[in-house]
Nucleic acid binder design. Structure first.
Lengths: 116, 116
DNA sequence: TGCTTGTATCGACATTCGTCAATGTATCTC
DNA sequence: GAGATACATTGACGAATGTCGATACAAGCA
């Protein structure tokens, strides 16, 4: 071992929340929180679900409209939606018999900013 | 099942490559490729490694300077670096006994743009 | 009250993942 | 060549993940 000539980059103040990966100060808490977010995005089915929910905008989308296009069983879709919920990427609202899902734009923005 | 009143959002032409999650046209290939990228980011240790590599800029960073700060064994760090490499987020270069890692900014940018 | 429908939860299973000790492979130095 | 050093690969193991069928739980309707 010899190298160790660390080039100290300027630590930009991260927008909104959390530090960016390019920030010098990148502590364990930030890393764990970000990792959770990216883990929720690390599945094609969830990306497709998130895409549909995002496209629905502020009007949201009914779970009944997500199952068939996803090509997965209803319990599997429900499971993936829970993962997205737990990661804070979406929120749900019960309306009578149906459940509607909405994207949490700020959280998405936070994950986006961390990749600056 | 009753809802199904899909609000058709405008499909923005994604910058650089790959469609954004907000795009109407979000096919399986895009989803799989993006999911691979996010999966590489879905671990605190890898985020920390990527952070250090990113901070090193174009001068890159030696593996010998990544092991100790990560708090993981050398084989574990080597494993995570391979995951980042396979995901196209970093590239490596052998210089004598040492190995230097560099970030692939375009790939990071692509993952960032998909969260528009 | 009972039946139907939409969604969530549970249980099981195969697969993938994170981790480390041990080992392999270059490269450098003496 | 012999030893030392830097990094990658292998093998093993427990933990987490994606999937589905079966089941539970509500809410609406007859």
């Amino acid at each position: 071992m010899a190298p160790t000539k660390r080039t100290s980059a300027v630590a930009e103040p991260a927008a909104m929340c959390c530090t960016a990966v390019s920030s010098e100060a990148f502590d364990q808490r930030d890393a764990a929180e970000l990792a959770k977010g990216y883990a929720a995005l690390a599945d094609p089915v969830r990306l497709q679900l998130l895409s549909m929910i995002t496209n629905s905008g502020s009007s949201g989308v009914c779970v009944c409209d997500l199952v068939e296009p996803s090509g997965r069983s209803q319990p599997t879709v429900s499971h993936h939606l829970k993962v997205l919920r737990d990661a804070g990427l979406v929120i749900s609202e019960k309306r009578g018999t149906w459940a509607w899902y909405f994207v949490v734009a700020e959280r998405l923005q936070g994950l986006r900013n961390a990749l600056a």
